[in-house]
């Protein structure tokens, strides 16, 4: 049985998008998405958290090739509700959904110097997101510094991300989801592991 998507797609995708936009504009600030308060909410398929499912339904459609590692149930749910092409090769994807260890970052689509906007968006579902000491974030969107604690990412992930930094404006943008929380790190954010 395919689980239902948004009950009110227009309103729910708008409120989820605003959460993502706010998250992308203020890197590391935690936003809420996929909650029940907007009149119903969605029922995520097995393996996805509410925020992850809401972000996917908000951003993915027939124009966005998507790579995912969450299994056949999620693939079926995405195909039905978002209608996005599912690709097997991570480097072909505009959106990537990683519930486990993400593919090697440098192999993904990073855009070109002239069209850096083609760089992929990596949606990472993690164990927990907290506004607590852990990572120190600096860059555009941040007045001084933001602190964010991310649990459940493989060791070496932040070092691998930092290696893409010299390529700017090419790069990857991250959306981190846990439960009904999400945070985003655009390619401009500098991360220090504190």
């Amino acid at each position: 049985m395919i689980r239902p998507g948004f009950t009110d797609p227009v309103k729910e995708s708008q409120s989820c998008f605003r959460a993502v936009l706010e998250a992308m504009s203020r890197p590391g600030r935690i936003q809420e998405a996929g909650t029940q308060e907007a009149g119903g909410g969605l029922t995520p398929p097995e393996g996805l958290h509410p925020a992850t499912a809401a972000v996917l339904l908000t951003l993915a459609d027939a124009e966005t090739p998507l790579w995912q590692d969450a299994g056949a149930g999620v693939a079926e749910w995405l195909r039905f509700h978002a209608g996005c092409p599912l690709v097997a090769a991570p480097e072909e994807a505009a959106f990537l959904l990683a519930t486990g260890a993400p593919p090697a970052l440098e192999t993904l689509e990073l855009g070109s110097e002239e069209e850096p906007q083609a760089g992929a968006t990596l949606i990472l579902q993690v164990a927990a997101l907290e506004a607590a000491p852990g990572l120190i974030l600096e860059g555009p969107g941040i007045a001084q510094r933001h602190e964010l604690r991310v649990s459940g990412l493989p060791a070496g992930f932040w070092a691998a991300r930092a290696r893409l930094r010299p390529l700017f404006p090419r790069g990857l943008d991250l959306i981190l989801c846990a439960g009904t929380r999400l945070a985003a790190l655009p390619r401009t954010t500098r991360v220090t592991e504190g």
């Binding site: 998008f17 993502v20 936009l21 992308m24 504009s25 908000t58 951003l59 966005t64 850096p116 906007q117 760089g119 968006t121 555009p140 969107g141 404006p169 790069g171 943008d173 655009p186 390619r187 401009t188």
Partner: peptide, 12 residues
């Protein structure tokens, strides 16, 4: 437009 906006914010 939303996807475009997110990339625009990511590359100021």
């Amino acid at each position: 437009i939303r996807r475009t906006l997110l990339k625009a914010v990511a590359i100021p």
